[in-house]
Design a protein around this nucleic acid. Structure first.
Lengths: 133, 133
DNA sequence: ATAGCTGCAAATGCTTTGCAAGGCC
DNA sequence: GGCCTTGCAAAGCATTTGCAGCTAT
């Protein structure tokens, strides 16, 4: 399931993101049909490998912008680096501490039951489960 | 359930931590019988409020040392600051995003079932559940 | 005496911001 | 033309580290 630039343009459009050159290029790297967990450095390396010229600041700008627009999910497993997850469906993660790597836990392979009563007036924004290995 | 300095000394001894002045003082702030989720800044403020003279580096040293010795649990919910949890029993957390505050989810109020098959040769170091509110 | 702590300051690492130049509708 | 984006360099923060002096055994 490869995505061509028309697919990428539609994807950005659906999230009301203006399809600039850098955004198209980075989205093209990320949304190729495979789920990914990337850091900013990963994206810079990916871009370099495809001769996409950009800057650290722009990669941060773009990933943050995508996350705010709901195109990426930010995942925090350790202080320091942030991961961005291209898989937006409800799922959880294995974290390989020695490798600093995330991996999806297959949907349905883990269930949470008996959600606790919430403090009043609050609603759940997300439920994050990380299994550290 | 107040702890006097003899209790603190025993606690450190049980974890093979040499009871230096600063360590005794910081442990005294943290282990008063109430569960806490503190940041480094919190500890510095607590220390200052009790006229304990110390430095940023020593608070980091001490909290990291306690965490490595199993006296504290490090909790990561956002990049930036780290939390240290004095509650060592198996439990999970609410995270109040707007306040940057953690709260324990009562034990038993939430269950996980159907743990997924692990990548071979791996074992679980911890299962962390964070419910963001 | 000696091994280990403490604390200052400098360094590190990731991320954000200020701002000038460039691109796009 | 005017607004948004890009990218460089500088700034910002939390954290770590180097190291000299101190402490306690």
């Amino acid at each position: 399931m490869e995505h061509d630039s028309r697919d990428i343009r539609r994807l950005l459009g659906r999230h009301e993101i203006r399809p600039t050159k850098i955004r198209m290029a980075i989205a093209g790297l990320l949304f190729d049909g495979l789920d990914k967990h990337v850091t900013v450095d990963d994206v810079i390396a990916l871009a370099r490998a495809r001769d996409i010229k950009t800057s650290v600041a722009s990669v941060y700008n773009t990933l943050n912008y995508f996350a705010a627009a709901g195109l990426l999910r930010r995942v925090t497993v350790e202080q320091g680096r942030a991961f961005f997850d291209t898989n937006l469906s409800a799922h959880h993660h294995f974290y390989f501490e020695d490798e600093g790597r995330l991996e999806d836990i297959p949907a349905g392979a883990l269930q949470i039951s008996g959600l606790p009563k919430l403090p009043k007036g609050r609603e759940i924004k997300s439920v994050d489960v990380t299994i550290r290995l």
